[in-house]
Simulated assay, not measured.
Amino acid sequence: MTSGTLVAVQGRSANEVHTLLLTLAGRVALAGGSLEIAGAPVSRRGTDAVRSPEPWRRRVGFVDARPVLFGHLSVAGNIGLPVRWSGKRHPREEIGKLCRSVGLDAVNDCWPAELDPAEQQRVAIAMALAYDPDLLVVAADPGSAGLDQLSRTLVDLVRLEGRTIVTSLATPIVQAGADQVLTLLDGRPIGTNA
C-alpha cells in the first residue's frame, strides 16, 4: 500500500473485519507473520498488542466506530488535546486546519452530544490526524447517520491530502473512491479489486 491510498475492507463477518482493523491499529496481537508500516516492523508473531500507545499513535491513527470524546469539551477542544500533546507550534491554526479537513469548521464550537455519530467519528479522525500518522484505520458502524459525509471525508483525505486509510466503511462513495477493496473470508483475503 502506497501513500495516498484508500483500502476498503469487507467480509461476511463484521467481527473478522473489525479484528483486522484492530490488528492494524496495534490493539490485537498477530497470530502469525509480521506487520510493517512504511517499511518498519511494528509487531511480530506472538507479541502482545502495542504496550506503549504514544509512539504507535504517531504511526497509526485508529478511529473506532463509536469513538469516545470528552463531553465537557467542544469539538475544537477535543481536537486541541492531541494537537497540544503532539507539540504543534501553532495549535489554534492546526485545530482550524484539522476542523476544515474533516468538514467540521461550522460546528467547532458544538459539544459532542450535539453531533450525530458520523460527525463524532470525524472529530475522532481529526484528533488522530493531529499526530500526522502514516496510516489511518477507521472502523465503521453501518447503521450510523451521516455516513455519506463521513465517506466523502475519507475519500477527500486520500485525494487532497495524500493520507493512507484502511476502513470498513462500505458505502458506494467509499467503494467508488477505493484504490483497493479487500474481501476477507475466514480471516484470509480472497481477493482485491480496484
Score class of each variant (00 low, 15 high):
Gly162Ile: 08
Met127Val: 02
Ile190Tyr: 11
Asp105Ser: 10
Arg27Cys: 11
Ala118Thr: 07
Phe62Ser: 07
Leu157Tyr: 02
Phe62Cys: 05
Ala29Pro: 12
Pro189Lys: 08
Asn193Ser: 13
Gly33Met: 06
Gly32His: 13
Arg159Glu: 10
Ser101Ala: 15
Leu6Arg: 04
Val75Met: 07
Asp64Tyr: 09
Ile190Gln: 11
Arg163Tyr: 10
Gly177Ala: 01
Glu119His: 10
Ala128Asp: 03
Pro172Phe: 06
Val137His: 06
Thr2Met: 02
Leu73Pro: 05
Leu169Ser: 09
Val75Gly: 10
Cys110Ser: 13
Pro67Asn: 08
Thr167Met: 02
Arg100Leu: 13
Pro41Ile: 03
Phe70Tyr: 14
Arg45Thr: 11
Val181Arg: 06
His90Pro: 06
Glu161Cys: 11
Pro189Tyr: 04
Asp141His: 05
Gln149Ile: 00
Ala140Met: 01
Leu135Phe: 15
His72Glu: 11
Val7Glu: 08
Val17His: 06
Gly162Ala: 06
Ser144Gln: 04
Leu129Tyr: 05
Gly187Ala: 04
Ile95Val: 14
Gly26Gln: 06
Leu185Asp: 15
Val181Ser: 09
Asp48Phe: 04
Leu185Glu: 14
Gln149Ala: 08
Thr19Gln: 14
Glu16Ile: 02
Gly146Lys: 06
Leu129Arg: 03
Ala140Gly: 12
Arg89Met: 03
Leu35Arg: 01
Arg27Phe: 15
Arg89Cys: 06
Ser34Thr: 02
Gln149Lys: 00
Arg100Lys: 09
Leu115Gln: 07
Ser43Glu: 13
Asn108Lys: 00
Glu94Cys: 09
Ala194Asn: 11
Leu21Tyr: 03
Glu114Val: 05
Thr183Tyr: 12
Thr153Asn: 07
Val50Phe: 13
Leu69Tyr: 04
Ala49Ser: 13
Ser43Cys: 15
Arg84Leu: 09
Asp156Thr: 03
Ile79Ser: 11
Thr153Cys: 15
Ala176Ser: 14
Ala139Trp: 00
Ala139Ser: 13
Pro53Trp: 08
Leu129Cys: 12
Leu24Thr: 15
Asp156Arg: 03
Ala176Tyr: 10
Ile190Glu: 15
Val181Ile: 04
Gly162Glu: 05
Thr192Gly: 09
Gly87Thr: 01
Gly71His: 04
Arg58Ala: 15
Asp64Thr: 14
Val166Thr: 01
Gly103Cys: 07
Gly61His: 12
Ala130Asp: 13
Leu136Gln: 07
Thr164Gly: 07
Gly96Met: 01
Leu98Ile: 11
Ala113Gln: 06
Ile125His: 00
Ala145Ile: 02
Leu69Cys: 07
Val158Asp: 09
Val28Gln: 12
Val138Arg: 02
Leu147Cys: 12
Trp85Phe: 13
Leu98Arg: 09
Leu35Ile: 14
Ala14Pro: 08
Leu22Met: 09
Asp116Leu: 01
Ala65Ser: 13
Thr2Val: 14
Asp105Glu: 13
Gly103Arg: 07
Ala140Leu: 01
Gly96Pro: 00
Gly46Ile: 01
Cys110Gly: 07
Asn108Ile: 01
Val158Trp: 08
Ala14Ser: 11
Val75Arg: 06
Gly33Arg: 04
Arg163His: 13
Leu157Ala: 09
Ala31Thr: 12
Asn78His: 08
Gln120Cys: 10
Gln120His: 03
Glu36Trp: 14
Val107Pro: 00
